[in-house]
Amino acid sequence: MTDPDRNVRSQLAFARLLPKLFRGGQAFVGVEAALSDLTDEQATTQPEHLPHTVAGLVAHINWWNRWMLDIIEMGQAQPYPRHAADTWPEVSAGEWSKVKNEFYELLARIDPHAARPDLSNPVNHEETIGELLADMALHTAHHFGQVISTRQAIGAWPPAGGGDTW
Rank of each mutant, 00 (worst) to 15 (best):
S10F: 06
T45I: 10
L119N: 07
A77N: 06
E105V: 04
H83W: 09
F22T: 10
K20G: 11
D40E: 13
L50E: 03
A84D: 11
G25Q: 12
P112A: 04
T128I: 03
P47D: 11
A59V: 02
P79K: 11
E73I: 05
A115H: 01
P89S: 01
I61Q: 09
T128W: 01
V54E: 11
N7M: 13
W67F: 13
S92P: 07
W63Q: 07
S92M: 02
M74Y: 07
R116E: 07
H49T: 12
L132R: 05
A55F: 03
T39E: 01
P122S: 02
K100G: 09
M136W: 06
P4L: 10
A115N: 06
R66L: 06
D111G: 09
R23D: 15
E41A: 15
T2P: 05
A114G: 04
I71S: 02
R23L: 12
Q46D: 01
F14S: 11
R82C: 06
Q78L: 02
A13W: 05
H83N: 14
D86R: 05
A114N: 10
E90W: 03
E126Q: 09
N121D: 15
V99I: 14
E127F: 15
S36W: 07
L138H: 09
M74R: 10
Y104T: 08
H125P: 01
Y104G: 01
M74V: 04
E95G: 06
Q26W: 12
L17S: 14
V54N: 09
G30K: 13
N124E: 03
P79H: 10
H113G: 00
I129W: 06
P19W: 08
N7T: 12
T39A: 08
I129R: 03
L12Y: 05
L69T: 07
W63D: 00
M68W: 07
H125K: 10
T44S: 08
A27C: 04
T128F: 00
K98T: 15
V29A: 13
L38W: 11
R9K: 14
A43T: 08
L107D: 15
W63H: 12
I71K: 05
A59K: 08
Y104A: 05
H139Y: 03
D3G: 14
A59I: 04
Q78R: 12
H60W: 02
A84H: 10
N7A: 15
P112D: 01
S97C: 05
A77H: 02
P47S: 13
P117H: 06
H52E: 02
L18T: 09
A34L: 12
S97R: 14
V8N: 03
I129D: 00
A85R: 03
G56I: 03
I61M: 14
R109D: 09
Q46V: 14
L21G: 09
D37I: 00
A108P: 05
A27I: 00
D40T: 08
P112Q: 08
W67D: 08
I110A: 02
W63I: 00
